[in-house]
Design a protein around this nucleic acid. Structure first.
Length: 374
RNA sequence: GGUGGGGUGGCCGAGUGGCUAAUGGCAGCAGACUGUAAAUCUGCCGGGCUACGCCCUACGUAGGUUCGAAUCCUACCCCCACCA
């Protein structure tokens, strides 16, 4: 269990198979985000049919509601949500960043003022492990301290060092608690500073062994070239024989760029959030479905897409649904976007296996960045 | 026919002498979104310019008072309610 086998690599890019208690994950792969135990707006069957092999849940949000006690009583997150395939839970570390105005960090952990009812909630490395074990995902994530992309070296270093100290505590607690049904993955921090990133990785590996390694704190406001550079500087130092998970990334081009730099797993809320906001990704760039130019546009979002939305609906109809504020519009574009990212994983994997990743990725990026024709 | 209320920018609707090209909302147009405080948020939204400023046209219609009117006065037109 939790074994990772690399089938082929092509430059830095790798195609592999990760075995988890609830099934295999063929990489590279995108993991749709289901913060509250649902990939927003989508039926689990749709998510499955779109090709999702693993989805995320969130410790902080599920702790607030319905609470891990309820979920444990209902037989764990898998049974509660009816999702049969692998799952990963985020630790709540990202909320240290995203709820910056609502929390206080101490060495012990983080105090949050609940955005739901204003109550004070504490998350520590230990409680995050407790909650995640109660949720019962295949992979639990370490509780980390995420800092903004523009963070100073001092702040980035502080977050990175704290993340390492917390990692020790996460590891200890998880070892006491969990059995072979769940593994724990650490998270590399260090902001946009290559040396901090390498120190973070070094400290992380010292606290191992691990069945996978995550890279966190990217796509949080830093320029894209910085993210690419950090990935490149880490690529050589990361263990070759375990999966690398780039947290919170990304947009389609980020997946392709990430895979080219050795990343195996991704997750991102943008597929569903942008979908709800009417923004769709296509092989020819972005499409804002609300634009008047789609009023009588008979084309699908993306003629090359094999998703259920593109198989059936015109842009004109999708636009109409948005203009009419019907939830079907949000759902259909969310579904398309999820499929679009999942398909990038599949296409990249096929290209790697065919020893053609460089050619494929170059062509893919060229077409994606070409201006969309009206 | 009488009495009362009312006619404001595509729509709804504030404003009752100067700070008003006129609050808001809707509609419309465009943009943002990366381990989800987001079916959210931001900008534009009378017309025209040699545009960080200027010029037109605007609050039912026509006059009037005033340095100045969507806001006050007069007449007329229209809408609504009630009474005949």
């Amino acid at each position: 269990m939790f074994t990772f086998r690399i089938e082929r690599d092509s430059g830095a890019a790798r195609a592999g198979i990760l075995d988890l208690p609830h099934g295999p994950v063929l990489t590279p792969a995108f993991m749709p985000v289901g913060t509250y135990g649902t990939v927003r707006g989508l039926h689990p069957e749709e998510v499955e049919q779109a090709g999702a092999q693993i989805i995320l849940g969130n410790t902080y949000h599920l702790h607030l509601r319905p609470g891990e006690t309820v979920i444990a009583a209902m037989g764990g997150l898998h049974r509660f949500t009816s999702w049969r395939r692998p799952m990963l839970t985020d630790s709540g570390g990202f909320q240290v960043f995203s709820l910056a105005g609502l929390r206080t960090i101490t060495e012990a952990g983080v105090e949050f003022t609940s955005h739901i009812d204003g109550s004070v909630r504490t998350l520590t490395p230990e409680s995050s492990m407790d909650i995640q074990w109660a949720l019962g995902a295949d992979i639990a994530m370490a509780f980390d301290h995420v800092v903004p992309g523009q963070a100073s070296r001092e702040l980035a270093e502080e977050g990175m060092e704290r993340t390492l100290r917390w990692l020790t505590r996460c590891r200890r607690r998880h070892d006491e608690l969990a059995d072979a049904r769940q593994t724990l993955w650490p998270i590399v921090q260090g902001g946009s500073y290559d040396d901090l990133r390498l120190r973070s990785l070094e400290g992380t590996l010292e606290r191992g062994p691990w069945t996978g390694t995550a890279i966190g704190g990217l796509s949080v406001g830093e320029p894209k070239p910085v993210m690419h550079r950090v990935l490149e500087s880490l690529a050589g130092a990361l263990p070759r024989d375990s999966p690398r998970y780039l947290m919170g990334v990304g947009f389609p081009e980020d997946l392709v760029e990430g895979i080219a730099r050795g990343v195996d797993l991704f997750d991102c809320v943008a597929a569903t959030r942008n979908g709800r906001h009417g923004s769709a990704w296509t092989s020819a760039g972005r499409v804002n479905i609300r634009k008047a130019s789609h009023r009588t546009d008979e084309r699908p979002l993306d003629a090359e897409c094999d998703c259920a939305t593109c198989a059936r609906f015109s842009r004109a109809y999708l636009r109409h649904l948005f203009v009419a504020s019907d939830i079907l519009g949000l759902r259909l574009i969310s579904l398309h976007n999820v499929r679009f990212l999942l398909r990038i994983g599949e296409l990249a994997r096929a290209a790697i296996l065919a020893r053609n990743f460089d050619g494929w990725s170059r062509e893919w990026l060229r077409r994606y960045h070409a201006k969309e024709e009206a």
